[in-house]
C-alpha cells in the first residue's frame, strides 16, 4: 500500500522520533512510504484564530502537494481533523477545489486509526513486546475523527504492556493551540488537573499521540516534578517490534542526542 506521510510543524520540529517510528512501523507492515517535502502546515493555527482566508490558501496548497497520494497518514489527530472536518467546508464553494478537498478528506487518516481501521493490524499476532506500565492520553481532536478507544485496543494487544486508564481520560489537557498562551491561567489549571490524573495511575509512561498535548502535559509534569516519560504509540510499537532502540531517557519523545552540542547550519 502506498502511503504519503503528513508530518506537520510540531511533530516535525519537536517530536521527530514519532515521525521516524511511523515510517519504521508502516514500512515493517509492508507500506511504501513517501514524504512530499513541499508540505508545510495544514493551516489549523490560522483557521482556529480566525484567519480563514489564509487557512484556505494553505488548504489549497496542501491539496496540491498531496494530489497524487493514494493515502495520507499523519501521527497527529489534530492535523487529520483539520483536513477531515474543516477542509471540505472551507472550500465548499470553490469550484476548482471543492471535490479535491473532499477527496483529500476521504484519503487522510490519523496513524492509529490507519492501523486499526485500514490495515486492521493485530499487535499480538505481530508479537509486539513492550515492558512497562503506561497510561494513555486521549486527545480531543480524535472526537472529530470519530475515534474512541482505538489506541487502547492496540495497547491491550501489546505483550507486557500494563495499561492503567487514567481518570478524566477524555477531558482536554488545556493545550488548545494558542489558547495555552492566550489564557495561561485557565490552561494551567486544566493541565495540572491532567497531571494529577496521570500521577494517580502510578504509570511510568504516558502514551500521547498528539504533539501539542505532549508538549503541554510533559511540560506540566516536569514543572510538578512528576517523573513520567512520554511516548507516542508509534514509538512504543516501533520499540516493541525491535525497529527502534528503547530509549528510557526519552521523556517527551526526545532522544538523548537531542541534548547534544550545537553543530548545524541553516537550511
Amino acid at each position: 500500500m502506498n502511503v504519503s506521510l503528513l508530518i506537520t510543524c510540531l511533530t516535525d520540529t519537536f517530536y521527530p522520533r514519532t515521525g521516524i517510528a511511523v515510517v519504521k512501523v508502516l514500512t515493517h507492515l509492508g507500506c511504501a512510504i513517501d514524504f512530499p517535502d513541499e508540505q508545510t502546515c495544514c493551516g489549523q493555527p490560522l483557521y482556529n484564530n480566525g484567519f480563514e482566508d489564509d487557512a484556505r490558501e494553505l488548504a489549497k496548497r496542501m491539496i496540491r502537494v498531496f494530489e497524487s497520494s493514494e493515502r495520507v497518514v499523519t501521527p497527529s489527530g489534530s492535523c487529520a481533523a483539520m483536513i477531515r472536518d474543516y477542509y471540505p467546508d472551507l472550500l465548499a464553494s470553490d469550484p476548482q477545489y471543492a471535490d479535491a478537498a473532499r477527496r483529500f478528506a476521504d484519503k487522510t487518516f490519523e496513524f492509529v486509526e490507519f492501523l486499526v481501521k485500514v490495515l486492521k493490524v493485530d499487535l499480538a499476532e505481530l508479537n509486539v513486546k513492550w515492558p512497562g506500565k503506561a497510561t494513555y492520553h486521549y486527545s480531543c481532536h480524535l472526537r472529530g475523527l470519530g475515534m474512541s478507544d482505538e489506541a487502547t485496543q492496540l495497547m491491550r494487544q501489546i505483550d507486557r504492556l500494563e495499561y492503567v486508564p487514567m481518570e478524566k481520560v477524555d477531558q482536554c489537557c488545556g493545550f488548545g493551540g494558542t489558547f495555552a498562551v492566550k489564557y495561561p491561567q485557565i490552561s494551567g489549571e486544566m493541565v495540572r488537573d491532567k497531571v494529577n490524573c496521570i500521577t494517580a495511575t502510578g504509570a511510568d509512561t504516558v502514551i500521547s499521540n498528539d504533539a501539542g498535548c505532549t508538549m503541554n502535559i510533559s511540560g506540566a509534569c516536569r514543572r510538578a516534578g512528576a517523573d513520567v516519560s512520554f511516548k507516542s504509540l508509534a514509538e512504543v510499537i516501533a520499540e516493541g517490534l525491535g525497529l527502534m532502540q528503547p530509549d528510557e531517557s526519552s521523556a517527551s519523545g526526545q532522544p538523548v542526542a537531542g541534548g547534544g552540542e550545537e553543530v548545524e547550519s541553516p537550511p
Binding site: G19, P184, G188, A220, G258
Partner: peptide, 14 residues
C-alpha cells in the same frame, strides 16, 4: 508561567 517548555531536538524529522 504555567509549565516548562520542551526545546526541539537538534534535527527535525525532515
Amino acid at each position: 508561567s504555567q509549565r516548562d517548555m520542551p526545546a526541539p531536538p537538534m534535527r527535525s524529522f525532515r
